[in-house]
Simulated scan of single mutants.
Amino acid sequence: MPLPISQIRAALEDGLLSFPVTDMDHQGRFRADTYADRIEWFVSQGVSAVFVAGGTGEFFSLSAEEYTQVVQTATQTVAGKVPVISSAGRSIPEAIAFAKIAEKAGIDALLLMPPYLTDAPQSGIFQYARTILENTSLPVIYYNRSNGVLSADYIRQLADACPNLIGIKDGTSNMQELNMIIRTVGDRLSYIGGAPTAEIISEAYLSIGVNTYSSAVFNFVPELANLFYASMRAGDTATVTSILQTFFIPFIQLRSRNKGYAVSLIKAGARIIGKEAGDVRAPLVMPTAAEVSELERIIQNGLQLLQ
């Protein structure tokens, strides 16, 4: 049975969130056994909520059958310890179908991804989101990103029209627009930082009342991710600056070398620490051997801060 909305929102508003990578074998097939181990490890490391089959989890490349396996494995493994949130999106029929799969699996809430590829007017994006929200019984977090960005006024309209909209995940890094949404809609919704490697702008998020964000690097340096989050919330500027300079800025510079590395480097990092998850699927590519070596150095430098 899904968790109460109050518990889901509490987890979204206070604590570090993360998206586990999706485990694949050498033939690119989903591995439920190692994925269950990964999810269990996430929970043991103190993650506030687990977002499965998200962007880092390659939702865009999963079949309906694989998605079913992912959400079933996640809910059975977590067993109500923390909220489990899965993605929906692509076309409206696909999004509704994925939402039904999630409902049946006992997922606690959905993250509604942007529509696939096509640019569209605000009115069309609003109707896309509203149609999907009205066709699921689950609470929904809207991912305001890419070709699915809604303005403050449209977010307010969506919140008014759909009682099951409970949150906004920001993927724009546009603090002005996000602050306008927060001041327009208020505490009707929960707000989550969701820009790639959100740690780099976490202080800006915090300054406008966004207390949580999703950490992709939790997949391979959870202790460091937790230390950074705790330091940021405590106002420990010295520790925040040290971790940013030593780990996050070099990581972001490496991530910026190729499209899709926001996902590919996470799988490479998981491999480096001995938690193999296979390669990313095309059209993404894995980093080169030289880039993997550089990532190893970045991880080692970051972990030294824990000593």
Rank of each mutant, 00 (worst) to 15 (best):
V280C: 07
F218W: 08
I249C: 02
I181G: 04
M24T: 09
I101V: 14
F19L: 10
L117I: 12
G260E: 03
G260N: 04
P287C: 12
I201S: 05
N301Q: 15
Q45R: 15
Y35I: 02
P114V: 06
Y229P: 00
N179M: 08
V280D: 00
T212Y: 07
L244R: 07
N226F: 15
H26D: 06
V78H: 02
N226E: 15
I107F: 06
G57M: 02
E291W: 12
F51A: 02
A238L: 08
T131W: 10
L12Y: 09
V52P: 00
N211K: 08
Q127F: 09
I200E: 01
T34G: 01
D108Q: 14
I272W: 12
A238S: 05
L306V: 13
I273G: 01
D33H: 05
G15W: 04
P20F: 13
T34S: 15
V71P: 00
A79C: 08
I298D: 02
I181P: 00
I272M: 06
D153Q: 14
V185D: 01
I192W: 05
E199F: 11
I200K: 03
A282R: 04
D279L: 04
G167P: 06
E203G: 12
L284Q: 02
Q45D: 11
E58V: 05
R255M: 15
L265A: 05
Q300M: 10
S202H: 10
P163I: 07
F42Y: 15
